[in-house]
């Protein structure tokens, strides 16, 4: 029995006709909206590859039923760069080689964006390691990931100091 939800994805509001109540946010993004940057690694909230921001908060898209999201706002990896300008977290992941195969990378980056905007990490690598531990990287790019989150944190603070309104409270940077 089709029904529709209203969902803002990467700054664009959509009315989405859901063909099935069993659809998760992850499968909605990947198989229906064709936003395939968000990855499925385990489909049960254990690996973090599907991390997106829901109303500014980090969530596992695989554990979230799309039907429950009427009126919500979702930011995915595709909505992070500002036009041709990478988000500081994205740039830091490249600079610090915080990725290898790249499959967990969108989830890692969305987690990092979330935790930086929540102000949890500070400048403490141990805190970053702990807070990023919901995202598994089987290639073992953790050292680069930790370094990238710290560097992006610095870059974001500098940016915020320079132009206080530059980055929204929830870390979303989508137009």
């Amino acid at each position: 029995m089709p029904f529709s939800i209203s969902l803002t994805v990467n700054g664009q509001s959509n009315s989405i006709a859901l063909d099935d109540p069993r659809v998760t946010l992850l499968d909605l993004l990947r198989e229906r909206l064709h936003l395939t940057g968000t990855k499925k690694g385990c489909d049960r909230g254990q690996c973090g590859a599907c991390t997106v921001l829901l109303d500014g908060r980090r969530i596992n898209a695989c554990l979230t039923l799309a039907a429950s999201l009427d009126g919500s706002t979702v930011t995915t990896i595709e909505g992070l760069a500002d036009g041709t300008e990478l988000h500081p977290v994205q740039a830091a992941f490249i600079a610090c080689d915080g990725l290898q195969c790249g499959y967990c990378t969108p989830g890692q980056i969305m987690s990092a964006v979330g935790l930086l905007s929540e102000g949890h990490a500070g400048n403490d690598p141990e805190r970053v390691r702990e807070l990023m531990s919901g995202n598994i990287c089987r290639c073992g790019a953790y050292q680069g990931i930790t370094q990238a989150v710290l560097e992006a944190g610095h870059a974001l603070s500098a940016k915020n100091d320079a132009q206080p309104a530059g980055v929204p409270e929830d870390g979303r940077n989508a137009a």
């Binding site: 395939t36 940057g37 968000t38 990896i77 490249i94 990725l99 969108p106």
Partner: peptide, 16 residues
């Protein structure tokens, strides 16, 4: 790197 950090690197199951 850019393809991978922007979600535009295409893995098999991303095809439709």
């Amino acid at each position: 790197g850019i393809l991978k950090v922007t979600g535009r690197a295409t893995y098999a199951a991303d095809n439709h």
